[in-house]
Design a binder for these strands. Structure first.
Lengths: 346, 346
DNA sequence: ATTAGCACTCACTTGATTAGAGTGCTAACA
DNA sequence: TGTTAGCACTCTAATCAAGTGAGTGCTAAT
């Protein structure tokens, strides 16, 4: 038995109808709705075949048919027709991504927001991992008699700061000097290298006069450095889950929301391949995501893949629409980062 | 008709029972459970009185009684017995609040987390409004040929930074000088004043050589300054809502989650009085919060009330427990800020 | 190969019945 | 006069039976 043209047509109709309605669809309805010149009985026969081949299932004997993961996969790979973004959608994306700031964090926040608005799903955007980043500048600013702010800037422009109390007496000039020395020592080093460098010890002992001061600052310095390496995940459209019939069950909605808020979820995203990746239902290896579909895409800076964005929702999602939006967005993000916010003014 | 001792006792029993069980309670059950030596019939009579006085209601003729807002109010003001925190609870609070950092943001995040964990409710913590803050230091750091990071530190230790592209050519020394001039000009000024100062214009025209540079930086400087003035709200325990029977309805849970995520909610919190404030059900003026109770408290820095934290949940919440936790936390926060993170090490 | 016809299945709706918890009222009691 | 026992009554929630309708699978006719 093989998939002839008619079978594909029927399967296509079932999948796209089910994506819209979330209701199992029967032979009679299908025949009426998509009047393809064949009787319900014929459709029934074809459906039986498709079921045997694993593309359809039955919730119970006399319910309509429901597509299986395999059917969605075929649909995504071959059956679905490409969705052309409307003018409004395009302009909304361009407008919102038209970066006012070069700050990745805020841009990503925006990206997630647009994505969830356009797809009515839960979206996410990850800032890039900074593993390959270099330290650029360190400064220590005195705020108070015993309080200082430590500011670090990385090559990629990420800024991190931390406030701490100094328990040893110090002079402003000492801070300034220390900051200069730190900058001098660590400038151009990979953040990850600094964390493992012995240089810190040397440094501390070298500078007799300021060793106490350095001692009280270094642990926090390292700590903040570590934080700079963390990727950050922005979620948006969390509440969209409530509009989806599949999650019209309090328990399911809860599990979903807990899942995406867990750290595991970030890890899952980090470990996904680059490019636009769609995993449907039980194609997901993680047990908890078995009745979701996940679409992720990579965006690039200077042609290097650095962060990810995408959506997560029910298996029954509008794959064509969602992928179109995501593709358009990543292209536009890439551009935005390349041109470097040329349009930085009102 | 007035509230004699027995009526109060009965009311107290009803409220505390209902807080635990969420089920309307009848005379017979009450008599059995809290064996207060009077028969169900007598309790019924008293209940009828209490109902007439507006302390109890009936969901329908033959259901048990349910406390009204008025009853909760009386309960909170006079009836409930103080809850003593357990050793575990105390130590958990102290441990978690034992600030490793002096950063308000992170501390508040922690505070919200503890609060939601201990109360099983949705909690929040607000960073203080910076209206009374002063600018301390400005620096401009070159990251790239045409990219700079603007760093600002306020007296209170809040650090804000923003990255921007400079379209005019510049030298590192110019940046340094500009930063120095800006610091010199704005240091010690109230953030809000700087925003309205004419001084910017003067400054820009005074420094012929760098006016172009300044021009491209100033708008963003002002912008970031504005952001520094914003209060930030940390929410935690959002998912706790799903464990509460009152919100076992997908629609209600949704409304609740949307409410606390709206900006309005922050405004409501900002506008509340200082100290520990409890508003119960329809005591809340905001329509949307009519079937919630809100408990907020203020914490202080140097004896000055600056931020708020609290919980929001169903009217039927453990007021005694929650208020004890909140009180202990605010005290401890006050201390923590006063001593200034003395215990800043492992 | 396609289709009409038919018996059958199964979730869902509706209505009726019942059990149970609780109330309000009255009359008896201490 | 306050308290209590007794009783009729009310209302929800759970259970059950019957009916409805969309859908299926199979068979026989086209």
């Amino acid at each position: 038995m093989n998939l002839n043209e008619r079978k594909l047509q029927i399967l296509q109709a079932i999948v796209s109808d089910f994506i819209r309605s979330a209701e199992p669809i029967g032979s009679r309805t299908l025949s009426r709705k998509y009047g393809m010149g064949i009787s319900p009985a014929t459709i029934r026969n074809e459906m039986a075949d498709l079921e045997e081949m694993g593309f359809l299932t039955h919730p119970y004997t006399s319910a309509g048919r429901v597509p299986s993961t395999k059917a969605y996969r075929l649909y995504v790979d071959a059956l679905m027709e490409r969705y052309e973004l409307t003018k409004d959608e395009r302009s909304q994306i361009r407008k919102q991504l038209n970066l006012k700031t070069l700050e990745l964090d805020r841009t990503m926040e925006h990206a997630a927001k647009i994505l969830s608005e356009l797809t009515s799903l839960t979206s996410f955007a990850m800032t890039p991992s900074q593993q390959e980043d270099f330290l650029k500048y360190v400064n220590i600013i005195s705020v108070d008699a015993d309080t200082v702010v430590l500011v670090m800037v990385s090559e990629s422009g990420k800024v991190s700061n931390t406030t701490l109390k100094i328990k040893v007496p110090y002079k402003e000039e000492q801070l300034e000097l220390l900051a200069k020395v730190m900058t001098y020592n660590y400038k151009g080093r990979k953040l990850t290298d600094i964390l493992t460098m012995d240089i810190i010890r040397n440094f501390e002992s070298d500078m007799e006069a300021m060793s106490k001061l350095a001692e009280s600052i270094m642990p926090r310095f390292m700590n903040t450095l570590e934080n700079m390496l963390d990727t950050e995940l922005h979620l948006d459209g969390l509440m969209n889950i409530f509009a989806i019939p599949e999650y019209n069950d309090i328990e399911k909605a809860k599990l979903f929301l807990e899942m995406v808020n867990k750290k595991d979820f970030t890890d899952i995203l980090i470990n996904r391949d680059n490019g636009v990746i769609i995993t449907i239902g039980d194609e997901n290896t993680e047990e908890i995501m078995r009745d979701c579909s996940l679409i992720t895409a990579t965006y690039e800076i200077d042609g290097k893949p650095v962060g990810k964005l995408g959506v997560i929702g029910p298996i029954r999602m509008e794959y064509n629409h969602v992928t179109s939006v995501i593709e358009y967005m990543t292209e536009h993000l890439n551009d935005a980062f390349l041109t470097g916010g040329e349009e930085d003014e009102e």
